[in-house]
Design a protein around this nucleic acid. Structure first.
Lengths: 207, 207
DNA sequence: ACCTGAACACCGTTCAAGT
DNA sequence: ACCTGAACACCGTTCAAGT
């Protein structure tokens, strides 16, 4: 076939799995390029080579499609940080490394919907939508928890993990948008400072 | 006039200041009751006793109306925390107290648009919209900064304030939505823990 | 059975026409 | 000059009709 390598072979009529992938791929592409706003079901359909109406036989709503994309991304995030958690030599370095990965997720997904916010709001009524998100989040957290226990053998408060997560979230949000007008500090600088401060604050007295 | 006290006197034809207030009041009411989503310009107009079209002679867009409401709320926030900053006896208590006030703001405004995010995105093109927001934010920050200097006379890193703010933001976001599914800790518990951890982490070595 | 394309209800926004 | 109400362009979603 005289096609350039970038041109995908067309999904066959009736290939539900392939079609579903096409839709998710188009969704991811659109989300990364243009963000959730200016993300139209008609654009999505065009990107996937189908009609808007058809998308609704694969996903019940725009929100559920978004949740599916989110779950996929969180799985990749969990896979990305697993080696970091395994190999990190200090809690401070681990925090900084995870922050970088989390920021990439946040820039695409964080603004409109956040990791857990989807869960109950749509999840209360449709458990099968929330479940992959809960699972990815839980897996991520236990990976990090294991690393914390390895790096900080001393007694560690169970509240530490939620606090670290909230801080990470706040830092990402702080650098999405236009904070530059309020303070002049950059991402690297503030994340490093946060890591140092938190590690120091969480380390037991007899340091 | 045989009117109940809850019935406002109708704004006179041509009273631009009164009309503007009516629109802002209706907007605030709608925002607090139903949130930004399900906030319709037609509902807003009905709440203010006017037509949707008229709103656009007072505010250039839904977003600018929202920014105006936000600025008003931030001014109230700044006024609310001023006495807290003046009277606080410890940095930990101050953090907890401010967190409570900030959460109230966040629950209405935080989800869709955050304090600074509006600034540049709409602000780059329309400075007069961004300016009140920047001003309210700056005023708030300097109030807090003064309190920090009073409570912690030792050398204090300038990065502390941005970190505290990001953490606050992250905590609020963490408790807006459905985090309950991931961890069992409550707001009071986690905020208290965050306050203790941050104060400890920010206090110079020779403690 | 998968899939299309027209339609529906609704949104933010504009603007000629009223007073 | 302030204000209305109809209209415009567009959105998410549905559904009869095609293959």
């Amino acid at each position: 076939m005289p096609r350039t390598s970038t041109t995908k072979t067309r999904t066959r009529w009736g290939d539900r799995d392939g079609r579903r992938r096409d839709i998710l791929d188009a969704g991811r592409r659109l989300l990364e390029r243009r963000g959730y706003q200016a993300f139209t079901m008609r654009d999505l359909a065009r990107g996937a080579g189908v009609t808007a109406g058809l998308v609704y036989t694969y996903f019940a709503s725009k929100e559920e499609l978004f949740a599916a994309l989110y779950a996929e991304r969180l799985d990749r995030f969990a896979a990305d940080i697993a080696p970091l958690c395994r190999d990190a030599v200090s809690a401070e370095e681990l925090f900084v490394a995870i922050a970088g990965e989390y920021r990439a997720v946040y820039q695409v997904f964080g603004r409109e919907l956040n990791v857990w916010a989807v869960l109950l709001e749509t999840g209360a009524s449709r458990e099968e939508v929330a479940q992959p998100l809960v699972q990815a989040a839980t897996a991520t957290l236990s990976t990090v928890q294991a690393a914390i226990e390895r790096l900080a053998p001393g007694r560690r408060d169970p509240l530490a993990l939620p606090l670290l997560w909230a801080t990470l979230h706040g830092l990402c949000d702080h650098f999405t948008g236009a904070r530059h007008r309020i303070h002049p500090y950059g991402w690297d600088e503030l994340v490093r400072f946060a890591a140092r401060t938190l590690v120091r604050g969480l380390t037991p007295e007899e340091d």
